[in-house]
């Protein structure tokens, strides 16, 4: 009986601890977001920093994003073709591929690439600055790390992600169209007919809304986790791993909230 009570208390304590940790992170992230918004609207973000970050996030991420988009479009097209052959009209595949890429695969796969390429880099960079006292040095010089580090990265993420997702959507759908022709012989005209049949312009807006949201939360979480880094090189490694896990969960949770909120 005592051991059951002990296990129960231990379980409750673990749940309570996890809840406290989530609440603390949420509070700190909200504060960081608010301070970044304030810095932006007060015009305190250095344009040069913003441009450097936007280039690193947008242009340098482009090759990997495009490869991921092409593969997503090809795989969706091939699997759809396999399922539809002999059951429903093949031109429907045009709609399935286009909507699959625009509504889901484009934003989410781009976000996953963005997390690995940009989010992890930001956490490692800010974490290294934290453990080497560069963040303390920023404070000691009367400057604000939110203005110097967080705000330019968040703004750059919000600019780069819609740009990347827009391109990923287009390239992914085209790759799907080419794959449909080469694997199940569906002509371009039929594919485009199917794509237009169920197309709503709102879908693209929805996709870019997701991109904007992911572009906001990925740099935000990565800077937050970087600022929490403690304990030298090992600490930077730990923080980067935790940050990637945290960002993936946040993106998937946000993605799951989008359909009930914005698709009716």
């Amino acid at each position: 009986m005592a051991s059951v009570a002990h296990a129960l208390t231990g379980g409750l304590r673990a749940v309570g601890g996890a809840g406290e940790s989530v609440a603390r992170h949420a509070g700190e992230i909200a504060q960081l977001a608010w301070q970044s918004v304030q810095a932006t609207f007060r015009g305190q973000v250095a344009f040069r920093d913003f441009i450097i970050q936007a280039y690193a996030m947008g242009v340098e991420s482009l090759p990997l994003v495009l490869v991921t988009a092409i593969l997503s479009g090809v795989v969706t097209s091939q699997q759809g073709g396999y399922q539809f052959t002999g059951s429903i009209p093949l031109y429907v595949l045009g709609s399935v591929v286009t909507n699959g890429v625009v509504l889901e695969l484009g934003p989410v796969m781009t976000a996953i690439v963005f997390i690995g390429r940009v989010g992890a880099r930001i956490t490692a960079e800010v974490g290294t600055m934290q453990v080497s006292e560069q963040i303390d040095a920023i404070y000691s010089l009367g400057r604000d790390p939110v203005r110097m580090l967080a705000a330019p990265r968040i703004l750059a993420g919000m600019l780069a992600m819609p740009f990347l997702v827009g391109l990923a959507n287009g390239v992914g759908a085209m790759a799907g169209m080419v794959a449909a022709r080469s694997t199940i012989g569906l002509g371009y005209q039929s594919f485009l007919y199917g794509a237009r049949l169920f197309w709503h312009s709102y879908d693209l807006f929805y996709s870019l809304m997701k991109a904007e949201m992911f572009g906001f939360i990925i740099p935000l979480i990565s800077v937050h986790m970087g600022l929490l880094t403690r304990g030298g090189a090992e600490g930077v490694g730990r923080a980067t791993t935790s940050s990637v896990v945290f960002m993936i969960i946040a993106v998937l949770v946000a993605d799951a909230l989008f359909p009930p909120l914005f698709l009716n």
Binding site: M129, S132, E133, Q134, D136, A137, Y139, S140, L141, G142, R143
Partner: peptide
């Protein structure tokens, strides 16, 4: 903080800034 200057143990210079930008930052 404007009244004080702080010399850090490992200098804590900003890696991506050159010497001019580091010294002038404050």
């Amino acid at each position: 903080r404007q009244k004080a200057g702080y010399v850090f143990q490992n200098a804590a210079l900003f890696d991506s800034f050159n010497v001019y930008e580091n010294v002038a930052l404050g």
